[in-house]
Design a protein around this nucleic acid. Sequence first.
RNA 1: GGCGGCAUGGCCAAGUGGUAAGGCAGGAGCCUGCAAAGCUCUUACCCCCAGUUCGAAUCUGGGUGCCGCCUCCA
Length: 478
Amino acid sequence: MLKLFNSYSGEIEEFKPIEPGKVSMYVCGPTVYDNPHLGHARCYITWDVAYRYLKFLGYDVTYCRNVTDVDDKILAKAEKEGISPDDVAKKYYDIFTESMNKLNNLKPDLEPFATKNIGEMIAINKKLIENECAYESDGDVYFRVKKFPKYGQLSKQPIDDLVAGARVEASSKKEDVLDFALWKKDEKHGYPSPWGNGRPGWHIECSAMARKHLAPQVDIHAGGADLIFPHHENEIAQSECANGTQFVKYWLHNGFVTINKEKMSKSLGNFVTIDGILENYDTNTIRFFILTNHYRMPVEFNDEALEAASAGVKRLSNAVNNLLSYVGKENLIENIDSEEIGQFKEAMDEDFNSSKALAVMFDLANKGNKAKDENNKDSALKYISSLMTIARVLGFDFEKIEISEEQLKEKLDIIVGEFDFIDKNQSAIEIMNKIIEARNKARTDKDWTTADKIRNELDKIGIVLKDSKDGITIWELK
RNA sequence: GGCGGCAUGGCCAAGUGGUAAGGCAGGAGCCUGCAAAGCUCUUACCCCCAGUUCGAAUCUGGGUGCCGCCUCCA
């Protein structure tokens, strides 16, 4: 039984979807005006794993992640770069998408753009004005916070303290400091509306897209913890006032990536971009690094942590690849149900306890390696099948990339001159076999100098030799 | 100031009141010509004080330290 920490109640709750067997999941997507950083990676990896796990449990999941492509920051960037706001949005959306792909995040089922849903936003605003939950003021539309008594429930903020802490803007068009914009007058870049040309406020975008693309009531709404106030608080107010039903059943929020104990963020400027981090560490390492911590806890970024993650990934991928070649990939058991899969579910059912889930993978790697050492193929097959299943649900891809004949030949050409026994015209595989044969002959002759030289040359081009007990030497990429 | 969270071995980290998962790093050993990979063994009275309890890392109260939200932010 899946249990989730609901930010709204502040408690762990049993997960029961509105409609049995179906889950609607809305995650606040990016505002596309700059390169995504590790904080975004954390957020979207977290919810990617949630999505994968819900599907693994057999739910029919509809995952919707919006794209905010109309925003002050996009306009500012457009100004700065001397291109149109649309081009800014397109450029950074493409970068974002590429980053998500590189991180092995599944594509959401729906990815609505704010600019394509302006009509729905206007419709909600009209409804809210009708309700007197909102009002027009000189081309702007504001939400009347006092009309929604539950305001502050999600963020647990007493409304009086919010008033006290609110910034008082000069020449405000608002009735009350707490009121927030649903629509902003913008004659230059705006869209036509009953209130003149303008742009939607950020909060209304998500309310509109969630309602239009999912339903007035969604099962899960997730995002970074920094969105709790005011973004999600405002979404609740708007949606519930407009729809007359509860907006979200389970509010889920992920913690931050920190650097020197401080939140990594655009405004602090202490961020590492996803592309930047991928230059030094691979996808699995980043995912592993993120998943070692529970999703609600902060994750401290530093090289030691990434190195540790990288070493952990290496251990798992060694086990996976060694075991796959031992049992034969084609023999893997589909949909295996084992004791370890049970432990994995138990872990993930506890509010996505990924840290425990990783421990199950290490346990399987260890058991699998042992089974292989003992030459127990049946056991090994069971363990690797379970391990592969878990890896898939967590979004890992541990399998070594197959190198093509051409790529191998290209590599070998670099070192082939070192060996006089090689005929350059042979195929890459033949050359590899020749090299290994030559080294094994040297080993038999106890000519360690030659044997080591061959191994070192191969190491230079990223090929590692592994001698096994039965006298067979295999090669693989580093 | 208001609200919320966190403090577990050298580092990261899980932990549902009964005597501390896992990973990384380190050490010892096995295997190996040497490696690589793998296997085995190995390092904790859980920030401090008080309380509840037969029993607390886990509950309560009080400290101390760190962080987040309260403004755009994943």
